[in-house]
């Protein structure tokens, strides 16, 4: 393989994992827009999606087409349940309390996952075989196409949901001005629950499609969450197109860094990007440097 092909290969790998960061970032955004909460348990939804899929396909022997939606649905139930039990009853919680509650939620989910699936990494067969497709000297796994297709579906689906459906518009209204939304009869509390359901669903989709490539274990969520948050911040917190672009960018950077510098520091690259953005441009690359928004906390 020549240098170009090698680089291209790294880019393909990066795009696959970057799509996952993008989806995690989208999940952060949905909850953040609706509630102002950063959900530290976001990565756990991804992990759960992968784990449910493993059980449904390998233990219950369900075909991918049926297991996929069931796995997503199960995680959505977990997300909604978490919001209903731990966040819904709170009255005027402080930012610190919210941070610690979502962290506690992530620890609890992690613990339950370890209880249910053990400590070993779980394997999931590729959906459409493992015969690589050759593109300009580099190869791409069919599973990567699944990942990209999922990202595309999620993006198109969200765009449709927020712009065309009544519920989606209602959610946007409460993100914009909760008091006004309440006045026109939108139940803000229900929208918060819905936002948790939606973002856990997106996390689950990411988890289902990436598991064949990276394997899944109960501890995987934390790092995915950190990097997904990096994507959300880099793209400008609250901006969906920003999160997608930034997620892909972080994935590619990480993959190039792992290839050309050292795989040890693969994870550090994404984190340094995250810190750099926080320090220099907390508004993100695409978002307007909305300092006022930061001051809300």
């Amino acid at each position: 393989m020549d240098a170009l092909a090698i680089t291209l290969q790294y880019v393909f790998t990066g795009v696959a994992i970057g799509s996952i960061y993008a989806m995690v970032g989208l999940g952060f955004n949905i909850i953040y827009n609706c509630t102002g909460i950063i959900n530290f348990a976001q990565g756990e939804f991804v992990m759960l999606g992968g784990m449910f899929m493993v059980t449904l396909t390998t233990v219950w022997k369900l075909p991918v087409g049926i297991a996929f939606p069931i796995a997503v649905l199960l995680v959505v139930l977990v997300g909604i349940g978490f919001e209903r039990i731990a966040i819904h009853p709170l009255k005027n919680p402080s930012v610190l309390v919210l941070i610690m509650i979502t962290i506690a939620g992530s620890i609890l989910i992690k613990g339950l996952a370890m209880f249910a699936w053990g400590k070993e990494a779980r394997y999931l067969p590729h959906f459409s075989g493992e015969t690589p497709i050759n593109i300009m000297g580099a190869t791409i796994l069919p599973q990567t196409l699944w990942v990209l297709a999922s990202l595309l579906t999620v993006v198109v689906g969200l765009a449709y949901f927020f712009n065309r459906t009544l519920i989606g518009k209602a959610m946007r209204a409460c993100a914009h001005n909760p008091d006004a939304a309440r006045l026109v009869g939108i139940s803000v509390k229900q929208m918060v629950t819905l936002s948790f359901g939606l973002s856990s669903g997106i996390g689950a989709i990411a988890g289902v499609v990436i598991t064949p490539i990276i394997l899944m274990d109960y501890q995987r969520g934390a790092m995915l969450a950190l990097k997904g948050f990096g994507a959300a911040i880099l793209g400008g917190l609250g901006s969906a197109p920003g999160a997608v672009l930034a997620g892909l960018l972080i994935g590619i950077l990480e993959s190039l860094g792992a290839g050309y510098i050292s795989s040890h520091y693969k994870d550090a690259i994404a984190l340094i990007v995250l810190l750099g953005v926080l320090f220099v441009r907390p508004g993100g690359l695409l978002g307007s440097a909305d300092v006022q928004r930061l001051k809300k906390f």
Partner: peptide
């Protein structure tokens, strides 16, 4: 502040952890 501070310090901790491992 708030969430940003939490994430930034979490990220810093993770970088040190990776450094100790590498």
């Amino acid at each position: 502040r708030g969430h940003y501070l939490a994430m930034a310090t979490l990220g810093f901790g993770e970088i040190v952890y990776i450094f100790l491992n590498s």
